[in-house]
Amino acid sequence: MPTLMLAIAMLLLTGSAAGAELDEADSMAWDLAVLSQALAGNAEHAVAFIETRHSGLLDKPIIITGELEYQPPDTLVRRILTPRPETFIIDDQHVTITRPRQKDRYLPLATAGALRGLATALRGILSGDLASLENTFAINLSGRADDWQLQLYPSEAELREEIIRLRIQGQQGRLSSFTLFEPDGDRAEVIVKAISDDAQ
């Protein structure tokens, strides 16, 4: 059975043509393990992002651009370029915030609210270790290999006060966008691109 799954995974990774032939009937084969394999096979740990944050507090959305980088085993770096440069280095327990011409700040992740949920999710996805997400979220996978969608629902009540749902979309082993839904109706939509695409 694992051999079969591996074969399917290889198929998924090698060509979208073959993937396109898989239909809903084959959803048995398209599961988290396969997606994990696919994500893990992606050596690209850094991506660029554009975040559009819709808040009931604001007349118009905030737009933030920057880069996300996964540094194995458990560090996530969120580098904001606009509107104001600053860097968040998020590890297992803490977040360090660096701003130009200011002293670093060092906070426990537990108090950083939404950041904790987001960081856990992104770490799991960028490292291809989706199993680790099951401690924090109830996971629902849908779609096809070339257009999949993950829905993450926080299982802890504490985290649900910050995030009610995370929707993550991608193709094969690549993440393309995610959206964070907050309890008060606010949401943040993040579009992810390869840095190399940006550079070109």
Binding site: R53, S55, R84, A114, L115
Partner: peptide, 11 residues
Amino acid sequence: ELVSYGGQLAE
């Protein structure tokens, strides 16, 4: 701060 942290705390 809302830009930096987002989330409920900043709001």
